[in-house]
């Protein structure tokens, strides 16, 4: 069963991996997005993710379903954390399992790219000098979302 969630508590990768996998799957893939200590040459101490939570939950579920449909699996899980995060914290976890590796890699990549394109989540970086700034983001398309299989 596919699953997706927007959460405020720390993400446990083992839990996300436990949501996928089946006897017919030869590939289980886990991607973690992690808060890094620098951005664009500036030293980052932490970040705050803000979200339009009800819409984000809906959009993430749609993205997961699109990826799963294209990959021919229903073992896809994606979790995005919001709130205050420190360097090293996991902000996003994506787990996919499928009979063969190619579909799992494709689905995982599709999900992280679509998150960056259209999930209503914003990131404010906190720099070591005390300044804070919203990270310049990407403008979502108003048009209906593309399908992962290109149809």
């Amino acid at each position: 069963m596919n699953s997706s969630a927007i959460v405020r508590e720390p993400i446990d990768p083992a839990h996300v991996l436990s949501l996928i996998g089946a006897d017919q799957d030869g590939a289980s893939l886990l991607f973690l997005g992690v808060v890094r200590d620098h951005d664009d040459g500036r030293s980052v101490g932490g970040v705050r993710y803000e979200t339009y939570e009800e819409m984000a939950a809906q959009v993430l579920s749609e993205i997961v379903d699109e990826a799963a449909r294209a990959a021919g699996t229903d073992r896809v899980a994606a979790v995005h954390r919001v709130g205050e995060l420190e360097v090293g914290d996991i902000s996003v976890a994506i787990a996919v399992s499928s009979p063969h590796r190619a579909e799992a890699y494709d689905a995982s990549r599709y999900i992280i790219e679509e998150i960056k394109k259209r999930l209503p989540v914003w990131k404010k970086e906190r720099y070591s000098d005390g300044a804070e700034e919203w990270v310049e983001g990407r403008t979502p398309d108003a048009a209906p979302a593309p399908q992962a299989d290109g149809s």
């Binding site: 993710y49 819409m55 984000a56 902000s91 960056k116 259209r118 914003w122 919203w134 983001g137």
Partner: peptide
């Protein structure tokens, strides 16, 4: 209606 600034998730 929500006004959506450029997004920066991930």
């Amino acid at each position: 209606v929500a006004l959506i600034p450029p997004v920066a998730g991930g």
